[in-house]
Design a protein around this nucleic acid. Structure first.
Length: 545
RNA sequence: GCCUCUGUAGCUCAGUUGGCAGAGCAAAUCCUUCAUACGGAUAAGGCCGUUGGUUCAAAUCCAACCAGAGGUACCA
């Protein structure tokens, strides 16, 4: 039995989840379900990222506490994931006591390492907000070209800047001028870990291409040491004297959630195996998260001790666009997961984002494509094949699976699918996996047509029975092959046919009595395309006014 | 500015090491009626962004250019 850790990215708790999050995170659940079906010990963890400036700012704007705000979104996230069938072993939050305790202990030891040092540097400070500000919360003019800019980078002339070099710096939150104060912080010497980090990338050609490219870029450009602490109220207190007023920088604690959450999941029993040499670790997130998983997390682990298991597979997706445009939460141009799950079936949503996800390059969500994917592929090809076969048996064989012999060609294809689909899932090629399964479904429909059982039913009843027997075997195996992708419908079919979800060839005996079956997927009205597209257009319209 | 990615059929895209351009959808014609107006077959559709180069052979490798997207470490 292999120990598999799957870490899904921790969504940031300052706003609702949209389809982009789901597109990046769904692969984690496919991996988890697949590895469980194979018989591996799986620990699939994630949680809500609750600390940091944006949550604090949002709380201030809403007149609520940061805890209230982040708890609100945490509950919403958990509900969305549940509805979509995410099979997390633990879904927690960074503001949980278990996580905070784990992080404080981890950091205490970390500070003793040779890779952590103290440094004083000027920090932007807003008197009116009474807080220090991160670079991107300082607005000002570029000293070189005079353009209005945000943060420490000029978009128009490309100059890399420090906030203290900006002209007329103002606070992005309240608009008042900012000053600068010296502040002492702990830094992690990422640059000193250059060789280990370089060798980590070089020894993992199976990371997604974008992860390798990003990481190499950072390494080649020269790794920069990073502050581990922040002058912020809302966060985990720094466990060091002299640092009572400071908190731990979120990227120095949220990625440790993989450890703290897997510790609670394992309840101490197999935590060591899970983080030992022979485990396998997958990290599933969007490309924006790459450096934090390939540089920061390994740096923290390496600086802490020699024994932690480093990332094996980085499943970093590209971005999802919406009707050809960039999704924008601030401008409300998005489809929210909670709205989607209210109206559409979870398997339908899962199918679309897994079959059309941003695996190797940006992908687009359009209502036209979504409705087509559901009605045409999921329902028309798969649902219909299941339905036409099983209702045929119900109608003409009294619901009893007729006598028949295995179809050698189909049987061989199924054997191959278990191998290739498994390999594709493990390597992060979810689109290819689904497309292989759906090719088989198309061939199954073709088989049904060329056998025309509705004719042999009277002309050659035993041939008719044989055809349906073979169709039932195909359905049984499809249910298992699709179970990581479409858990809800697969569970239904497995229930009807009384088969397990083990990742191996299934068979249903002749004579088995089918229960009453129902339609697998509801058809989506085509008018949805127009009404939903109109809604998005009106959002764009408002934006321009 | 710099870096990365993308450009292939009307649309969405696949094309792993160079070897006769592929799939799905849409549109066309036909077959079918077991099934959720569902399924199947056939044909049609392409200057593979542009221009050069390497090669017996280039969508694929190299160079330049054009167009678009993304990134450029304390925004997740």
């Amino acid at each position: 039995m292999n120990h598999i850790l799957i870490g899904g990215a921790w969504p940031y708790a300052n706003g609702s989840l949209h389809i982009g999050h789901i597109a990046g995170l769904l692969p984690g659940d496919v991996l988890a379900r697949y590895h469980r079906a194979v018989g591996d010990h799986v620990c699939f963890v994630s949680g809500s990222d609750c600390h940091g400036t944006p949550v604090a700012i949002r709380a201030k704007q809403e007149g609520r506490s940061p805890k209230k705000v982040s708890d609100f979104y945490h509950r919403e996230f958990a509900e969305c994931f549940k509805k979509l069938g995410f099979s997390y072993d633990v879904y927690t939050k960074t503001s949980s006591e278990e996580h905070k305790k784990f992080v404080r202990e981890f950091h205490e030891k970390l500070y003793e390492s040779d890779y952590v040092y103290e440094k004083e540097a000027p920090q932007a400070y807003c008197e009116s907000c009474g807080t220090f500000l991160a670079g991107r919360f300082v607005l000002g003019k570029c000293p070189k070209c005079g353009t209005d800019i945000r943060g420490d980078q000029c978009d128009s002339c490309g100059a890399v800047l420090e906030p203290e070099n900006l002209e007329e710096p103002v606070c992005a939150v309240c608009g008042k001028p900012v000053g600068f104060k010296n502040s002492k912080h702990l830094y992690i010497a990422v640059a000193k870990l250059h060789d280990q980090l370089k060798s980590l990338v070089d020894t993992h050609p199976e990371w997604r291409k974008n992860a390798i490219a990003f990481t190499n870029r950072y390494i080649d450009d020269g790794l920069r040491d990073r502050a581990l602490t922040r002058d912020l109220e809302w966060g985990i207190r720094v466990p060091k004297s002299g640092y009572e007023q400071k908190t731990i920088y979120i990227w120095a604690e949220n990625v440790l959630g993989y450890l703290s959450a897997s510790k609670s999941a394992a309840e101490g029993t197999c935590f060591d195996e899970l983080w030992g040499e022979n485990a396998r670790h997958y990290y599933v997130h969007g490309k924006d998260n790459i450096p934090f998983h390939t540089i920061i997390l390994p740096s923290l682990l390496l600086a802490h001790s020699k024994n932690w298991h480093l990332p094996d597979r980085i499943i970093s997706s590209e971005y999802l666009t919406l009707e050809g445009r960039k999704i924008s939460t601030s401008q409300n141009y998005a489809i929210w997961v909670k709205d989607l799950t209210d109206q559409y079936e979870p398997d339908s949503i899962r199918y679309f984002f897994l079959a059309n996800g941003p695996e190797k390059k940006d992908a687009d969500f359009s209502w036209r494509a979504y409705v087509h994917s559901h009605n045409g592929e999921l329902l028309g090809a798969y649902g219909n094949f299941v339905n036409r076969s099983l209702t045929f048996i119900a109608k003409y064989f009294d619901g009893i699976v007729p006598e028949g012999t295995d179809n050698p060609a189909a049987s061989r294809q199924i054997d191959e699918l278990f191998v290739t689909v498994g390999r594709q899932i493990e390597s992060g090629a979810f689109k290819d996996a689904l497309s292989g399964i759906f090719d088989f479904i198309r061939s199954a429909n073709k088989f049904f047509d060329t056998e025309h059982p509705w004719i042999t039913r009277t002309s050659d009843p035993s041939a008719c029975g044989n055809t349906l027997y073979q169709c039932v075997q195909m359905i049984a195996n499809l249910a298992v092959l699709l179970s990581p992708f479409l858990p809800f419908s697969s569970e239904k079919v497995r229930g009807w046919l009384n088969i397990s979800n083990k990742w191996e060839k299934q068979s249903v005996s002749a004579g088995y009595a089918l229960p009453e079956v129902e339609i697998l997927f509801q058809r989506i009205d085509k008018n949805v395309i127009e009404t939903e597209t109109e809604k998005l257009k009106s959002i764009l319209h408002q934006r321009q006014d």
